[in-house]
Amino acid sequence: MHIEEIRDYCIVKPGATEETPFGPDTLVFKVGNKVFLLVGLDQVDALSFNVKCDPEYALELRNEYPATVIPGYHMNKKHWNTIYCNRQLPDEKLRSLIDHSYELVFASLPKAVKENVK
């Protein structure tokens, strides 16, 4: 998976927006003004992204794929994972982790915000 594929996959999700609030080198995807994925634009050798994850599932993934899934870099380690692309996981699994993050964040939004997401 390449960074363009990550962007294309994230931006078509209902209500998804993209920003660079941490500077020009970090692309952030949000739904309802809450982050569901971060990816560094300056990565050359090892592309990775951060996604939110159910804490128990996060631990399972880290144990099963130690070379690919690590505690979220610069994030709450309980709820966020850093996922390395093009290692142990196929693109389909990477997309499912993006979906999981989006769904967790969307589920946490207030009802009024959810109703306005299109």
Rank of each mutant, 00 (worst) to 15 (best):
T68L: 00
A58L: 03
Q88E: 08
S48F: 11
K52L: 10
S96V: 14
M1G: 09
D54N: 14
T82E: 08
G15Y: 01
D45L: 12
N33F: 02
L89M: 10
V51S: 02
N116A: 03
E64N: 12
V28E: 13
P24H: 13
P21H: 04
P55F: 05
C85L: 07
E5V: 06
I98P: 00
D45Y: 12
P66E: 02
C53P: 06
R62V: 00
K52C: 03
N116W: 06
H74Q: 02
V44N: 09
L27P: 04
D99K: 06
I83G: 00
K30P: 06
H100I: 04
N33G: 04
H74E: 11
P66I: 01
A67N: 15
P90G: 12
V28P: 06
T82V: 01
N81T: 01
K77R: 08
Q88V: 08
N81C: 13
F49K: 07
I3F: 00
E4V: 01
K78F: 00
N63H: 07
N76S: 02
H100A: 06
Q88N: 12
V39H: 08
M1E: 09
P24D: 08
R95D: 06
G72Q: 04
E4A: 04
P71A: 09
Y9V: 00
P90M: 14
K30C: 03
E19W: 12
P14L: 01
A67Q: 11
A107C: 13
I70L: 15
P24A: 15
G15N: 13
T17L: 15
A46W: 09
L97D: 09
C10Q: 07
P71W: 02
G23L: 09
E19N: 10
E103C: 04
R95M: 13
P90Y: 04
Q43C: 08
A107W: 07
T82I: 04
N86I: 02
A67W: 02
K114L: 06
G23M: 11
H100V: 15
N50E: 15
K77M: 10
F22L: 11
